[in-house]
Amino acid sequence: MAQSLAKEFTKGLWAEIPPFRLVLGLCPVLAVTKTVENGLGMGIATTFVLVFSNLLVSLLRNVIPSKVRIACYIVIIATFVTIVELVMQAYTYPLFLKLGIFIPLIVVNCIVLGRAEAFASKNSPVMSVADGMGIGIGFTLSLAALGAVREILGAGTITIWGGNSVFDMATSFPGFNPFTFMVEAPGAFVALGLMLAIMNLIGEK
């Protein structure tokens, strides 16, 4: 039991890490990873929705008729998204403004619905929570990693939580010129594509 629990949890961190292995939910991945902070915020919000929607879907898996299950899942997910939206609006307002419409759009993030349909609807609540946590944390790490690549190359610094600069390219590498392309729209596609290629290269060995 404990072993399979750990397996469900860790698969989200490498073997099925979204969005690299599981190419789903790309919109927030591309749109909010201009900075590490945005990526982390989006990742944590998605993780919350994933864990709780997985839990509720799993608890109700014997009650929901299979014909209307997708509609039921969407309502469950939308409820948790609304909770996240209101909480973020109340406590992390600047981040709420930066993420904008991508917070309500967690509803249509295919990862969340995908886990509900593929995992939570067939497994026990404990397993489903482990699965949600694993996939959620994997997703958060990917977003933060992509955010870091884009922010370092595009802006030259990493700034998190209220303007504290934790890393500055200009001090480590004098003469570094920010590569503004990376924080623009095309940079997101190219950075993700190349990171995917690196993951493939590592995975092959």
Binding site: F189, V190, G193, L196
Partner: peptide, 12 residues
């Protein structure tokens, strides 16, 4: 997917 994303970047 990887080359598709890079291509999408160029179109963007």
């Amino acid at each position: 997917t990887s080359i598709a994303l890079v291509t999408a970047g160029v179109i963007a």
